[in-house]
């Protein structure tokens, strides 16, 4: 069983700000049903770009729910500029820490927040260069090539451990293998 802090347990059993925010004017979504966790973040932002309300809907494990709950508590009252500086470490710290295997839950919070801010400002999030290989963890072929070259990764498992790519729904494992093979072929 995971060693969750009391704060994680509290935010899982009694999550703050759950549900759709009817008058939200910024929404950020990340993850999917296939991946095993997903977060939809709702923000209500006033004319001064201050977050006056926030809520979430999350599908996932206890730490995913707790991270989402913590995120909404952290950002309420912040301006978008302030919120943009919130890191996944801040979310984990707020909860008194997360097991290292569960840090991706806080990364998911950060990602949804970035998307919500971009949504409000009407800006496209800069697409990462390259072709998207792992949609669960948003990893591109260029990132895989770089990691394979830099770390001498040999198998799909290596890539998953390093980048998480392929560790979600698993449907890109064949593509990852091709990318690894292409690096090897280049020598």
């Amino acid at each position: 069983m995971w060693e969750y802090t009391d704060k994680v347990k509290d935010h899982f059993m009694h999550p703050r700000n759950v549900g759709e925010l009817k008058d939200a004017n910024a929404i950020g979504e990340t993850g999917s049903l296939n991946c095993g966790d997903a977060l939809k973040l709702f923000l209500k932002v006033d004319e001064n770009e201050r977050i006056v309300d926030a809520s979430f809907m999350t599908f996932g494990c206890a730490s995913a729910v707790a991270s989402s709950s913590a995120l909404t508590e952290i950002i309420k009252g912040m301006t978008l500029d302030e919120a943009a500086k919130v890191t996944n470490g801040d979310i984990a710290d707020y909860l008194g820490g997360l097991p290292k295997e569960k840090m991706h839950c806080s990364v998911m919070g950060k990602s949804a927040l970035q998307k919500a801010i971009a949504d409000y400002r009407g800006i496209q999030i800069m697409e990462k260069p390259g072709e998207m290989v792992c949609e669960c963890f948003e990893v591109t072929d260029l990132e895989i090539i770089e990691a394979v070259k830099a770390n001498g990764l040999e198998t799909t498992e290596d890539v998953t451990n390093y980048l998480k790519a392929g560790g979600g729904c698993g449907k890109c494992l064949g593509r990852i293998e091709e990318v690894i093979a292409s690096v090897k072929a280049e020598g």
Binding site: N34, C35, G36, D37, G60, K102, H104, G167
Partner: peptide
Amino acid sequence: CTSGSLDPSHVLMAMEVPFK
């Protein structure tokens, strides 16, 4: 559900149980 792998068990995947 861990960082390296979020996939459901190999048994359920082998049986093509839908992710939902």
